[in-house]
Measured scan of single mutants.
Amino acid sequence: PVYLSVKADNSMFIGNDPVTDETMITALNALTEGKKDTTIFFRADKTVDYETLMKVMDTLHQAGYLKIGLVG
């Protein structure tokens, strides 16, 4: 499974590897070998604001990742 996490300080990680807004999709493409039907499990600290969550989800959708599971 692929886990994308947003921490309380808005830092992002794919698994244990830090990513930025600019590198997130490139890292996901490498990890999933470009398979856009891969489910991305998205988790965020409860203090992360809604705007940040939606920005990340919008970026995922624009890149073609449509299977996003929200996890606690």
Score class of each variant (00 low, 15 high):
56 V>C: 04
6 V>A: 02
46 K>G: 08
11 S>H: 08
8 A>S: 12
25 I>L: 10
71 V>Q: 09
30 A>D: 08
17 D>W: 13
14 I>Q: 01
60 L>K: 00
1 P>S: 10
65 Y>K: 00
1 P>V: 14
43 R>L: 14
29 N>W: 07
60 L>P: 00
43 R>W: 15
45 D>E: 10
10 N>A: 09
72 G>W: 06
46 K>D: 12
11 S>E: 07
15 G>N: 15
6 V>M: 13
16 N>I: 08
6 V>I: 15
39 T>V: 14
22 E>R: 08
40 I>R: 00
12 M>N: 01
58 D>L: 13
72 G>I: 14
53 L>C: 10
60 L>F: 03
70 L>M: 12
16 N>D: 12
36 K>C: 04
37 D>R: 04
72 G>H: 11
36 K>F: 08
57 M>Y: 08
8 A>R: 06
15 G>C: 11
70 L>R: 06
65 Y>I: 01
33 E>W: 07
61 H>E: 07
22 E>F: 07
64 G>H: 02
63 A>R: 02
48 V>E: 02
5 S>C: 15
41 F>P: 00
49 D>K: 14
40 I>K: 00
10 N>D: 06
17 D>L: 14
66 L>Y: 15
47 T>N: 14
55 K>P: 02
19 V>W: 02
44 A>C: 12
43 R>D: 09
17 D>G: 05
30 A>C: 08
45 D>C: 07
59 T>R: 14
67 K>S: 11
56 V>M: 08
60 L>H: 00
26 T>R: 09
72 G>Q: 12
51 E>A: 13
48 V>D: 03
65 Y>E: 00
48 V>I: 09
43 R>N: 10
25 I>G: 02
69 G>Y: 15
36 K>H: 07
54 M>Y: 09
20 T>N: 09
5 S>M: 12
46 K>Q: 11
19 V>T: 05
17 D>N: 14
27 A>R: 13
40 I>P: 00
18 P>E: 11
46 K>E: 13
62 Q>E: 11
54 M>S: 09
10 N>P: 01
46 K>Y: 10
66 L>Q: 10
43 R>I: 15
3 Y>K: 03
51 E>D: 10
38 T>N: 05
25 I>Q: 02
19 V>Y: 04
70 L>Y: 11
37 D>F: 06
3 Y>R: 04
48 V>Q: 03
64 G>E: 02
44 A>R: 04
50 Y>L: 12
66 L>N: 11
16 N>H: 11
72 G>F: 10
11 S>P: 01
13 F>Y: 13
33 E>Y: 10
22 E>V: 10
16 N>A: 11
67 K>T: 11
31 L>M: 08
24 M>K: 00
26 T>G: 12
33 E>M: 14
53 L>G: 01
72 G>V: 13
32 T>R: 02
40 I>Q: 00
47 T>W: 11
5 S>Y: 15
53 L>M: 08
5 S>P: 01
70 L>W: 14
8 A>W: 11
38 T>P: 04
38 T>Y: 07
70 L>A: 06
4 L>K: 00
39 T>K: 12
3 Y>F: 11
56 V>F: 06
42 F>E: 00
71 V>H: 08
50 Y>K: 12
33 E>S: 12
10 N>W: 06
47 T>A: 13
11 S>T: 13
21 D>Q: 15
69 G>C: 15
61 H>W: 11
36 K>L: 10
59 T>Y: 09
25 I>N: 02
68 I>F: 05
52 T>D: 05
62 Q>C: 07
64 G>P: 00
15 G>A: 05
43 R>S: 14
13 F>I: 04
32 T>C: 07
45 D>H: 08
40 I>L: 04
70 L>V: 10
60 L>S: 00
9 D>R: 06
31 L>Y: 09
7 K>S: 08
29 N>K: 06
32 T>A: 03
60 L>R: 00
48 V>G: 03
35 K>D: 13
43 R>C: 15
43 R>Y: 15
67 K>C: 11
41 F>Q: 05
47 T>C: 14
45 D>L: 03
8 A>M: 07
16 N>E: 12
69 G>S: 15
59 T>H: 09
27 A>G: 03
15 G>Y: 04
55 K>L: 08
23 T>M: 07
4 L>P: 00
64 G>V: 01
3 Y>E: 06
12 M>Q: 02
55 K>R: 13
57 M>E: 02
30 A>M: 11
25 I>F: 03
49 D>E: 12
24 M>Q: 01
27 A>N: 06
59 T>L: 15
44 A>E: 02
57 M>S: 03
63 A>F: 06
21 D>H: 15
70 L>F: 14
11 S>Y: 06
47 T>E: 15
23 T>D: 10
49 D>G: 13
29 N>E: 13
39 T>P: 14
22 E>K: 11
45 D>W: 06
14 I>W: 04
18 P>N: 06
44 A>Q: 04
54 M>W: 10
36 K>R: 11
19 V>K: 01
29 N>Y: 08
25 I>Y: 02
66 L>E: 08
56 V>I: 15
26 T>H: 13
6 V>P: 01
49 D>C: 10
19 V>M: 03
17 D>V: 15
9 D>T: 06
25 I>R: 02
64 G>L: 02
27 A>Q: 11
51 E>N: 12
7 K>E: 09
51 E>W: 12
55 K>W: 13
56 V>H: 04
2 V>I: 14
52 T>L: 13
14 I>N: 01
11 S>L: 11
7 K>T: 11
6 V>D: 00
20 T>I: 03
3 Y>M: 09
9 D>L: 05
2 V>C: 04
10 N>T: 07
29 N>H: 10
31 L>D: 01
61 H>S: 09
72 G>S: 12
16 N>Y: 07
38 T>M: 09
6 V>H: 02
50 Y>P: 12
72 G>N: 12
9 D>G: 09
35 K>M: 07
60 L>N: 00
42 F>Q: 00
40 I>G: 01
58 D>R: 13
13 F>E: 04
11 S>G: 05
12 M>R: 03
9 D>F: 07
53 L>F: 10
52 T>W: 14
62 Q>P: 00
70 L>K: 04
52 T>N: 06
17 D>F: 13
44 A>G: 05
13 F>R: 05
59 T>C: 08
66 L>I: 11
44 A>T: 08
41 F>N: 05
41 F>H: 09
1 P>R: 09
44 A>H: 14
52 T>K: 10
15 G>L: 04
27 A>E: 07
50 Y>G: 08
46 K>H: 12
7 K>Y: 15
52 T>H: 10
34 G>H: 07
39 T>G: 04
39 T>L: 14
63 A>S: 06
21 D>A: 15
65 Y>F: 09
11 S>Q: 12
16 N>M: 09
63 A>Q: 04
28 L>F: 02
21 D>E: 15
36 K>M: 08
25 I>T: 04
61 H>Y: 13
51 E>K: 13
20 T>P: 03
30 A>E: 10
19 V>F: 03
53 L>H: 03
1 P>N: 09
12 M>T: 03
48 V>K: 02
66 L>D: 09
69 G>F: 15
16 N>K: 10
7 K>R: 11
14 I>C: 03
27 A>S: 09
32 T>E: 01
70 L>H: 08
39 T>M: 15
26 T>D: 14
61 H>C: 09
65 Y>R: 00
53 L>R: 08
39 T>W: 15
19 V>D: 01
34 G>A: 04
29 N>D: 13
10 N>S: 11
12 M>L: 11
17 D>Y: 14
63 A>P: 00
18 P>T: 05
22 E>Y: 08
68 I>S: 03
2 V>Q: 03
23 T>N: 12
63 A>D: 04
2 V>E: 01
7 K>Q: 09
50 Y>R: 12
62 Q>H: 09
4 L>C: 03
28 L>D: 00
27 A>C: 09
67 K>L: 09
28 L>N: 00
33 E>T: 08
34 G>P: 02
28 L>K: 00
44 A>F: 13
69 G>M: 15
60 L>D: 00
10 N>Y: 13
57 M>R: 07
12 M>V: 09
66 L>R: 10
33 E>L: 12
25 I>K: 02
30 A>S: 09
59 T>M: 15
55 K>Y: 07
63 A>L: 04
50 Y>S: 09
65 Y>H: 01
71 V>I: 14
69 G>K: 15
56 V>E: 00
27 A>T: 14
15 G>Q: 07
17 D>K: 13
18 P>F: 09
69 G>L: 15
38 T>S: 06
4 L>V: 12
61 H>K: 14
64 G>W: 01
13 F>H: 05
15 G>P: 01
14 I>P: 00
17 D>S: 12
39 T>N: 07
22 E>L: 10
18 P>H: 08
28 L>A: 01
32 T>G: 02
62 Q>T: 10
14 I>D: 01
37 D>N: 11
61 H>G: 06
60 L>M: 03
22 E>P: 02
65 Y>C: 01
19 V>P: 01
33 E>K: 14
64 G>T: 00
61 H>V: 10
25 I>S: 03
17 D>A: 11
29 N>F: 08
35 K>S: 07
25 I>A: 04
22 E>C: 05
19 V>I: 09
34 G>M: 05
45 D>S: 06
21 D>V: 15
5 S>Q: 11
31 L>C: 06
17 D>P: 01
58 D>W: 12
64 G>S: 02
61 H>F: 12
34 G>W: 04
60 L>G: 00
28 L>R: 00
45 D>G: 05
25 I>P: 02
18 P>K: 11
56 V>A: 04
56 V>T: 05
17 D>I: 15
66 L>T: 14
51 E>H: 12
46 K>T: 11
21 D>C: 14
1 P>M: 09
29 N>P: 01
34 G>N: 09
57 M>V: 10
39 T>I: 15
47 T>G: 15
32 T>P: 01
8 A>L: 06
42 F>W: 02
44 A>S: 08
30 A>K: 13
57 M>T: 04
14 I>R: 01
12 M>P: 01
52 T>E: 04
39 T>H: 12
58 D>Q: 13
41 F>I: 14
67 K>H: 12
29 N>T: 08
71 V>K: 06
45 D>T: 04
39 T>R: 11
25 I>E: 03
71 V>G: 07
15 G>K: 03
59 T>P: 01
28 L>E: 00
38 T>I: 13
31 L>W: 08
